[in-house]
Computed example of a mutant assay.
Amino acid sequence: MAAYPTRRDDPLAEKKRKLDVWSEEEEVWSPDPSLGHDYSAKTEQARREEESAPRPVKIPTLDHFKPPTRFHIAELFSVRESGSQAVLSAAKFLLGVSSSLDGEPLRRCSGFWVDWDAEKKTGLVLTTARLIRTKDAPYSVWTGGQEYAPNADVTVHLLNGTSAKGELVYYQPHYDIAFLNVEVDQPIKLPSLREKDVEFAQEVFQLGRDNSLNLRITYARAEYLNPNLFERHHNVYFCSPDGHDDDNNEYDNGGLVIDLNGKVVGMVNDPERFGSFIPSSILLNCFDSWKKYRC
């Protein structure tokens, strides 16, 4: 006769016994009150150690690097050498200009030298008439509505880090130009303005100075595009792979447009909307007329 299995030999009984023991331990166990205190103390200690620990060393080579110029992009590889020389040469003539009215800042733009009076020790800066504009046209330049403040205070920001008071001697809203007289104690070099207009699809650089006098560079081509009904007929437009969605584009107003030889082919007059500039032939005519007739 087979013997009945004992409790030791019964696997179900052994499993039931373990469950009973676990249940009893679960009912009897209670957390140690000191554990909460120890946890808080350890958390506080970790916080203090973190605050007292030395700050991690910032290694420049690990930072995201953004080159200060645009010559690292693929579109500019072919003009990297000639473009760099042209930009560095023209940058010597490029300044920052700002205006204020009744003590309140009005606009910040760019400008460049176009004349030097050795006898009076004054330099003449060409910039955009937007510098003193207080109200833009609500619809287009042809419908009117633009307002200017010829009595606005004008400051010219020189490349040596100093500033000089500028005197507005002439402004022309139609061509969007303004001339500023500035006292300078040293002779200045003047850029070369090209008499022949830029050709369509010709490579150019748009240059400006931001509010820290940093050089702003935009590579572009003269676009096959005529001005529309809402713009001045003398405007020439850009086609740039850089785009014109930069919030700081307004600083380029009044800045230089140069060719790959460093010669001035125009002045930036609307980089925010269509990326347009005034060709150098018109700038030369305006300058010559002003010098001859002072009007």
Rank of each mutant, 00 (worst) to 15 (best):
T218A: 14
T128R: 04
A46H: 10
L106K: 01
A3S: 07
T127P: 08
G161T: 05
L284T: 03
L283M: 09
Q206W: 08
P173D: 10
Y39N: 04
V97D: 00
L256K: 03
R107N: 11
E119Q: 15
I73D: 15
G96V: 06
T134R: 08
V21L: 13
T143D: 15
P56S: 14
G262Q: 02
S110M: 04
S110P: 06
C295K: 15
C239Q: 13
H64P: 07
Q85N: 12
Q146E: 15
S192N: 11
R17T: 14
G145Y: 07
G111C: 09
R130L: 03
E44G: 03
F179P: 11
P11T: 04
A178C: 03
L35D: 08
H174P: 00
Q202D: 12
P279C: 09
L158M: 12
S52P: 00
H72E: 09
Y237T: 11
L106C: 01
E250P: 01
A74E: 15
L94H: 01
S276T: 10
T61G: 13
G83F: 00
A46P: 10
R209N: 05
R194F: 03
V264P: 02
F238N: 09
P56H: 09
H174K: 15
A152Y: 12
P67C: 04
L76Q: 12
S140K: 05
W113E: 03
Y219V: 04
F200N: 09
E272H: 02
R17I: 13
F71M: 03
Y4V: 10
A220P: 14
N249A: 13
G255A: 07
F179W: 10
A13G: 02
C239T: 05
T143W: 11
E119D: 14
K42I: 11
P187N: 05
G262L: 00
V204L: 13
E195T: 12
L101M: 08
D115M: 06
Y170M: 07
W142S: 13
Y219I: 00
E51C: 00
R107T: 02
L106R: 02
Q186L: 09
L180C: 04
L283C: 07
P11L: 04
L76Y: 07
G208S: 08
E195D: 15
E81A: 13
I188C: 08
N211S: 14
L94R: 01
R273H: 10
E119K: 15
S140W: 03
L283V: 06
F77R: 12
A222R: 09
S140L: 06
V265A: 01
V21K: 14
A74W: 13
L124S: 08
V125S: 01
V268D: 02
L229K: 15
Y148Q: 04
L207T: 05
V257Q: 06
L126P: 07
D259C: 02
T143A: 15
P150Q: 10
M1E: 10
R7F: 06
L180N: 05
L190H: 01
E250S: 13
Y4L: 11
V268I: 14
L180T: 08
D288F: 14
R108N: 14
E51A: 02
S78R: 09
F112V: 05
A46S: 14
E223F: 07
F274H: 11
E199R: 12
T218K: 15
E167G: 00
D242I: 12
I217F: 08
R48F: 00
P173G: 14
